[in-house]
């Protein structure tokens, strides 16, 4: 039926347009900001984490970001997934002091961190964090890669996006200009501000861009630790369903052979 075909095309077209529109709700807000596409190893159907990069990213987090940002969903033991050995993880955990208790005497005591502890929080609570940061709150970074439009591309862009404000723009007190932050005024001072700020053990040159990439890789792993398993399983399941679909269709054809 010609009429039905064109109706179908119309409906599909409208659906597609509406679907695309819904895809980018945040873009509609304010001026459009284009993020540079960073091409991470975990993009695409066969994506996987670049372990070396994620380990460097953890180092950047530990040495730079962790003085302001917590990651309370993660435990030190999770770092094993990044290829760190049991000893390395124990060593990292032991660098922090954790309040534990009450013990059998009812006392709370400080002890060295263990692999099973959550990442150490820089501030005891939100008020303390705000007090130390000019009233701004450095958000927990555990799921930040899922909590921002653009994910890792946005994180990378944000970290390299600090600039002098355009002429005539009045920044608020304690605010900094960032090309990619919505509204362009951010309370976080450029955390990555000089090449060589972090010394990578594997000899990679720690340019600002490299540190930003590595920490974005790390934060994506932290937000979606299941990503590799998920994509690998997805490929198998899609292959399986393709074969099953072929079989189901063949059976259907056979069953219906005497009807049409």
């Amino acid at each position: 039926m010609v009429g039905f075909r064109s109706l179908k095309a119309l409906v599909l077209g409208a659906g597609l347009v509406a679907g695309l529109g819904v895809q980018a709700p945040a873009l509609a807000a304010g001026g459009e900001i284009h993020l540079p596409d960073t091409r991470f190893s975990f993009d695409g159907l066969f994506g996987h984490f670049d372990r070396a990069s994620a380990q460097r990213g953890f180092q950047v987090y530990k040495e730079v970001c962790s003085s302001c940002h917590g990651m309370h969903q993660l435990s030190y033991r999770n770092l094993r997934d990044l290829g760190l050995s049991e000893n390395e993880v124990a060593g990292i955990a032991a660098t922090v002091q954790v309040m534990d208790g009450p013990n059998d005497e009812g006392q709370f005591v400080e002890r060295a961190g263990r692999a099973s502890d959550r990442f150490h929080a820089p501030f005891p609570n939100e008020k303390a964090a705000r007090a130390a940061n000019n009233g701004a709150y450095p958000p927990d970074l555990s799921v930040i890669a899922k909590a921002r439009e653009g994910g890792a591309d946005y994180l990378h862009a944000l970290l390299v996006g600090y600039e002098e404000p355009p002429a005539g723009m009045q920044l608020g007190a304690g605010m900094h200009y960032n090309k990619y932050f919505p509204g362009h005024q951010i309370a976080m001072p450029a955390p990555l501000n000089s090449d060589g700020q972090v010394e990578f053990h594997d000899g990679t040159k720690s340019t600002i861009d490299q540190m930003a990439r590595d920490v974005s890789q790390f934060l994506t792993w932290a937000a979606e630790p299941e990503l590799e398993q998920r994509k690998a399983m997805g490929v198998k399941i899609i292959l399986f369903l393709t074969v099953l679909g072929g079989l189901a269709y063949a059976v259907k054809r056979k069953v219906w052979a005497d009807v049409h």
């Binding site: 994509k231 099953l244 189901a248 219906w256």
Partner: peptide, 24 residues
């Protein structure tokens, strides 16, 4: 078996779309 067979085709196609979203 006519519509059980035809529904099976639809179910597999539906699961494939569903899987594409869930896994990727």
């Amino acid at each position: 078996p006519y519509y059980t067979a035809k529904d099976s085709v639809g179910i597999v196609a539906y699961l494939a779309v569903f899987a594409l979203i869930v896994f990727f």
